[in-house]
Computed example of a mutant assay.
Amino acid sequence: MKLSIFLSLAGYGSQAQERCGKIQFGKPSQFAPVSLSSFPGSGNTWARYLIEEYTGYYTGSVYHDGKLYRGGFKGEKEEWREGRVVITKTHTFRPEYDPLTDAVILIRNPYDCFLSEFNRITSGSDHTGKASNADFMDAKWVERDFSKLASRWLRLYTNLLKSGNDILPIIYEEMKADPKMEMKKIVKFLDVHTDYESKYDCLFGDNSLRFKRSSYREYDPYLYIDQERLKPVNKAIMELSALLNSTHGIELPITYQRDLF
């Protein structure tokens, strides 16, 4: 499988490189039904790339995204209940509908999540696309219901943390800063053993960074928003941080909070 195929579809063009190693499916029922749960815009695609390269096994999804499948995520259309994918992407938690209960939960600053998802939607569901300044000045951004978004963000992780299932919280910003450490946690949680150390130089170099949408821009889209409408987001951050502290002894980075004026 050529990494260049995915990168070309994702808009990386000539920067494409090959995969760091062979990716394969497991045997039927080899893997337990574990989810990679996250709010949209949390870096799930990049995390899946790291997990696939690190473990050597395909990840799955409940969404069957054709673009990701064509781009190289061959587990995207796999029936995850067969147990051949090492972990399965989902953005919801509905244990009454499926057995994806144990989970690696990927948590990212909600302000960045909302921004990333807006980029994706505005750029035509491109997992690496970006909205323009004009898009952020439009009512579709300026008048977004951030209170509702914050409530959904908080509810997803709260339900997972209070579910009584085995949960591994992964902070996106910590994974970005030290991907090796976070991948070791995930591999241990999934109980997968592969020769991943031989991939270090390739996996944690510039290669993996090309699977992330660039967050750099010369302006702050949130300054176009009435700051009063962002207070529920700060409140949701504090509530989730307190819950994480009580359940796993960790807290969200203080940088999640915005100074509102």
Rank of each mutant, 00 (worst) to 15 (best):
A10C: 07
G11V: 06
Y12I: 15
S14P: 15
E18V: 08
G21R: 15
G21L: 11
F25D: 02
K27N: 13
L36V: 05
P40W: 02
G43L: 01
N44E: 03
T45Q: 06
W46G: 00
R48K: 12
R48P: 02
Y49S: 06
I51Y: 00
E52W: 02
T55L: 05
Y58H: 09
G60P: 01
S61R: 01
S61H: 02
V62M: 10
Y63D: 09
R70I: 11
E76G: 07
K77H: 15
E78M: 06
W80L: 05
R84N: 05
V85L: 04
T90A: 04
H91R: 05
T92I: 15
D98Y: 15
P99Y: 09
P99S: 13
I107Y: 00
I107Q: 01
N109K: 00
D112S: 14
C113K: 00
F118W: 08
R120S: 12
G124P: 00
H127T: 12
T128F: 15
K130R: 14
D135K: 03
F136T: 03
M137V: 09
M137N: 11
D145W: 08
K148R: 08
S151Q: 14
S151W: 10
R152T: 10
R155H: 06
N159R: 11
N159V: 08
L161C: 04
N165I: 09
N165E: 14
L168C: 05
E173N: 05
E182P: 02
E182N: 04
K184I: 12
K184F: 06
K188C: 06
H193F: 11
T194V: 13
K199H: 13
D201Y: 08
L203I: 07
D206P: 10
R210G: 05
R210H: 11
R217M: 12
R217A: 07
Y219T: 11
D220I: 07
Y222D: 04
Y224H: 12
Q227W: 08
K231F: 07
S241H: 06
S241P: 05
T247S: 10
